[in-house]
Nucleic acid binder design. Structure first.
Lengths: 350, 350
DNA sequence: ATGATTTGATAATAGGTATTATCATTTGCC
DNA sequence: GGCAAATGATAATACCTATTATCAAATCAT
């Protein structure tokens, strides 16, 4: 068995071409100036030597020397590749992969990140974060301390989803839920609805606040009157009663799964969607169906969000930290309202 | 705005604890021997300093010094995160993620790898392969040159799926399709079948040969007589004729999708599955259904395959290349036959 | 008391790349 | 011919960690 083959280095190339390691580096990086000059002949000789060999720059050495490596970290606060997560992460990861292939960069998934005192943390004692040029953060809920520290350390990163709750200015790419919610409420009003239910889980995430803001605004301005129904861990008793009491003719839910649950509970009470009552999610609906009908809601173009996030991240990486303020680092993409077949004209008046 | 914070290094820790960088390194790695001794007092002082700080070892420097990093590369010959690929890659990636989290390692997806002269190559001029401790290779078809070079360079890697076509000994974890195929044929025989069709695509992949081997063996031994039907790009004209001519009472297909196509063509000819003819895939069937019935085939436990692959890879990484022969580097896992509801007792005799 | 050994710690170096500073040689000019 | 400037190339260094070699001081043995 032959001895372990050592990797070919610039020094090796230099030996072959009869120059110094410095010269090889200069040729590789097309460096040429008043201080360093390399005539075409020498340049060609070195290039030949490289071409003949299997030389590949050592990424570790490059990184140590402070250069970029076209490696972007990906951090998720929960497992991203499980079947259950696919509904949410799938399109994002798909978008990331496509964009990464496009621009020629690799993706480092921080699948380690052990659970420390309850929650996953990006900064554990063995984090390989610094190996990446930058990092994409995915997840509904993310740790405020992580975000703050990333900002403080001037580490290039982009969060997917709006994140302006913290004091630090967090770069993000998200969807404009405010506009979407407003638009869908408008639509319901145009269809003759005056009283609605909003079935939500918790109200702590930024997007939850976005929706709530519009819902409160609508109720305040007398556009569409909302009654809130909290569904703690999917508990929907009280739903039917609340609907009857409010005389609601349309139900908004926080997400598509909740909409399915709601439809199920309504069906149990003999209330048919959408003939008896309209139903719509204030979230991505993809191909969710209720009673065989396409659920109304949003189309959030997660593929584009992911691509935009990677693009922004690359800009951050290639821009010195002092000039980051010149970039638009907080970007909201416009989604689309998906009318579906479950949001229809007001039928039963009360 | 504060100046860019430099990362805290061992040198910095050393300065705080009043020792040398060497000592810090020794403490971190619990080094202690005849040559280097550190009294408990000093050791404690250094540990304190580290604890107080945010010190994290620089992975690039570690790598450059020839150490491992708990980073495993993942290479796929096609996009792995697209919805279309999910059927095949999904369970594998899920298994990888779980196993990686378990053992605390990160996954570096080589999503760059541009297309060079027709096919994707692991070894392009900017490959970041060496940044990983080892690499998992995924994909139905993989490049023989890549495999050979990996073996030659003694780079730790594991292929998912049997790979013994090449001269070099490729470490792999796969499913024993030979046993599964044999078992399913036995089952068909026990159900009274004597003549079968095998509908296949190409016959070049290793698993395709596995299946074919058993099919030929069965035909030769007079167990179950097979007639081959090639479905070039899904073209299934000739299917019905071949079935009639051979008097086949059961159809085997190369994969589940092909089984669905076959069922469709049969239905078009007024032949019902499984009442008129039995149908089974020689591949993973998961929750594929034909005429509302669970398709017969295999259960290949891809989650376990992925976990086993990562486990083997870790063994390779932590074992010097000279001793690799002592490990079982070619592993076949036993899958399970999934009887389903489309492989039934022979009905129509011919 | 003095040579041998143990103890505690560090200087020096490797690993591969990029950059800065430096140097020797050649060319240009009058 | 002699000095300034341009040219071609390299030595030295930084990046950070792990390891090997080295060294001074303290302890031991006789």
């Amino acid at each position: 068995m032959s001895p372990k083959t050592r990797n070919v280095t610039q020094r090796e190339i230099a030996r072959i071409a009869g120059v110094s390691q410095t010269t090889v580096s200069m040729v590789l990086n097309d460096r040429d100036g008043s201080n360093v000059r390399i005539p075409a002949a020498t340049r060609e000789r070195v290039k030949q030597a490289i071409e003949q060999s299997t030389y590949v720059a050592d990424p570790a050495a490059r990184r140590l020397a402070g250069l970029d490596n076209q490696i972007m970290g990906v951090f998720t606060y929960e497992p991203a590749l499980s079947p259950e997560s696919m509904d949410f992460y799938g399109p994002l990861l798909n978008g990331l992969e496509r964009a990464a292939e496009q621009v020629g960069c690799d993706l480092l998934f921080f699948t380690s990140s052990p659970v420390e005192n309850g929650t996953r943390s990006l900064f554990h004692r063995k984090t390989r974060l610094r190996l990446a040029d930058g990092c994409i953060l995915l997840g509904q809920q993310m740790d405020g301390d992580d975000l703050k520290r990333l900002v403080d350390e001037r580490f290039p990163f982009v969060a997917v989803g709006r994140r302006d709750e913290t004091t630090a200015k967090v770069p993000y790419v998200g969807i404009d839920y405010v506009s979407l919610t407003a638009e869908l409420i408008e639509r319901a009003i145009a269809l003759g609805h005056t009283s609605a239910l909003y079935v939500h889980r918790n109200l702590h995430s930024p997007t939850a606040r976005d929706r709530m803001q519009q819902i409160e605004a609508s109720t305040a301005s007398g556009g569409l009157r909302f009654t809130l129904v909290a569904a703690e861990d999917g508990d929907l008793t009280g739903l039917v009663g609340a609907a009857a009491e409010a005389g609601a003719t349309v139900i908004f839910t926080e997400d598509a799964f909740l909409a399915e649950d709601v439809a199920h509970v309504l069906a149990g009470a003999g209330i048919e969607v959408p003939t008896a009552i309209s139903l719509t999610a204030l979230a991505e609906v993809r191909d969710h169906r209720v009673n065989g009908r396409a659920l109304a809601g949003f189309q959030t173009l997660r593929l584009q969000v992911a691509a935009e996030a990677l693009s922004l991240l690359q800009q951050l990486v290639t821009t010195p930290a002092e000039e980051w303020d010149d970039l638009e680092t907080q970007r909201l993409l416009q989604g689309m309202v998906e009318l579906g077949e479950t949001l229809v004209e007001r039928t039963s008046a009360k």
